[in-house]
Design a protein around this nucleic acid. Structure first.
Lengths: 338, 338
DNA sequence: AGCCAAGGCGCGTTGAAGAAT
DNA sequence: TATTCTTCAACGCGCCTTGGC
């Protein structure tokens, strides 16, 4: 219940008037720094409480030259980003930084999302899966620390930091798992031009070559969603001989595959093995129970936050690119071929 | 590339100096209001462009008494909230309001989320599924317009606006669909104390009574996740006779049920029918193909934004509670009992 | 001397009022 | 009299200097 006399938001001056002290003293008390006596301190806090005073974060920021604000651009449509955001909060707040979120959605492009963060005086930007041209990101990085998470950029061509999963290694471990089970006819359903897709394709090719399966390399066009996986599965159905294993671009794509196989009476993993990527909630659902490559989300967030904070505080930035190791999670959709 | 001489962010004064005019005039030009000649206008814009000037949103807010900021509290763990947030952006920006996001996560409770929004000078709060005590929400609503989305509150006991789906009606339509198919032994797996759970329980009971099935009413404790659904399913397995249909609290809970049934060799919908709630991506996945009750997400967001803006602008607020109709989506998990 | 508190200034912006064409 | 532009003060807060007991 606000007791502000004039209907406006109470300010330091209102508290000061009520407590019978100067605004400077109220400021001291509110920030909890030394410079006020215990009795006065208590009186000021009581007055603030009574009129419902809250410090104005924007005015405070205006005054100090540092804003201690980390801007985060993320997409509402990607559940993966939500997990990353959670990690950013966890890493930023203990380090004394606040997080400002700016979402990308159908009605709100990346440009607007970033503009909002800059107008808010963020000191650094953490971009999840940015689609903007590399040149645009480089331009931003001239103005303030910028880190791209999950989108790879050519190193040393700009100041943009990169934090990403070792996508190639992830797919490689998936292929190796399948080879160890005895598979040879292993197909990759790719992610087109999605972030990480080309690395995953490369990891697939590398692993196949390394195991003497160069002649069996086969990449089918796929995408990020269940529909893409389903379409690829239909193509596979018409293939003879059918491959014995599939490595999908991500879990959603893999689930699309599983669905078509299930409906077509093709048993997984008995007749065909399927591997996903991400270890999303989807994969963990018991009746999906998907073998997949897990990304280390806490470490990705932490590295991104660590990178920009190091830049802000002038600490030496160890490497411009941080590559986080993925981890194969074997569940029920892979088995030895018949 | 910033040409700011001193390394700091360029301000109005920097632009003014470069263009040889006063800061007030630069302000006029940047806002695009009238009061500047065409030639000067062009010169100022060019100067701003050259030094990479951007208006400082915080300083601007400090000066003006309105902030035009709508604060949104949402949970990163609920995909449903992401969809709602997208709708909020779409509704707020055309109306001339900016959106400030504040997430609730494991490491960040509602109190902190709301505090951040208030410190940022938000003029109104849109809370998605708030768990805070009603008294706390009422207290907030004394200070600024507040709307609770998807959490019901006793009307007229506080100034908190409510926007929600007609949960009872949704479950009622689910039960009616099952009754029409010939089911009588219909169980409800509830959501405990989750938002909407008590209404859904009530809708279930009402519908059962209305169809003369009062003796068959049976509510099992459930929850919001797949695990809760799975646990309830295991309880059902030991029940004799087993019910012929289940109405779950939400889609995730329903998927947990489906999973256990699948593994136990109980055919859905042949041996048992299952209905969810939300029409999430999960439900739409072809191999889940869940019959469910859809919430009208765009309308929920729009109503929430409309409500707080009406309050802010002193327009008459038609009703304190806006109830949005749900819609039954019949898919493949319901059929006539054997 | 040593603690406490007050006063003034500046942060980047805008609105009002007035000066110059 | 219009138009274009400038000067001045204020927004809410934090730091620094000064003054009082």
């Amino acid at each position: 219940m606000s007791t502000a006399s004039n209907g406006k938001r109470p300010t330091l001056a209102d508290v000061a008037a009520r407590a019978g002290v100067s605004t400077a003293l109220v400021s001291i008390v509110m920030r909890g720094v030394k410079g006020a006596g215990d009795a006065t301190r208590e009186r000021v806090l009581k007055a603030a409480q009574e009129i419902g005073y809250r410090p104005d974060a924007r005015a405070r920021l205006l005054r100090s030259h540092r804003s201690q604000l980390l801007g985060v651009q993320f997409s509402l449509e990607q559940a993966f980003h939500s997990d990353l955001v959670e990690g950013v909060y966890a890493a930023a707040e203990p380090a004394g930084y606040q997080v400002v979120l700016s979402a990308v959605a159908a009605s709100r492009g990346e440009q607007r999302a970033v503009d909002a963060l800059l107008a808010d005086r963020c000191e650094a930007l953490i971009l999840f899966g940015p689609q903007a041209p590399a040149a645009r990101l480089a331009e931003l990085a001239e103005q303030l620390p910028v880190v791209s998470v999950a989108r790879r950029l050519r190193p040393s061509t700009s100041r943009v930091g990169v934090v990403r999963t070792a996508d190639d290694e992830g797919v490689r471990s998936a292929v190796e798992h399948l080879v160890a089970l005895g598979h040879r006819e292993i197909v990759h359903i790719d992610g087109g031009k999605a972030p990480g897709a080309s690395d995953r394709r490369r990891g697939y090719r590398t692993a196949m070559n390394r195991h003497g399966l160069a002649d069996h390399v086969r990449v089918l066009p796929g995408g990020l969603t269940e529909e893409h996986g389903a379409a690829a599965a239909r193509t596979l159905l018409d293939t003879h001989p059918r491959p014995s294993a599939v490595v999908a671009f991500n879990d959603r794509c893999a689930v699309g595959l599983l669905d078509v196989f299930l409906r077509s009476g093709i048993a997984v993993p008995d007749e065909i093995s399927v591997v996903g990527f991400d270890d999303s909630h989807l994969a963990r659902m018991a009746h999906v129970n998907l073998t997949t490559v897990a990304q280390d989300i806490p470490r990705l967030s932490e590295s991104a936050v660590g990178h920009v904070i190091a830049r802000l505080e002038g600490k030496p930035v160890d490497e411009k690119e941080t590559v986080v190791a993925p981890r194969l999670v074997v569940r029920g959709t892979t088995a030895a071929p018949r």
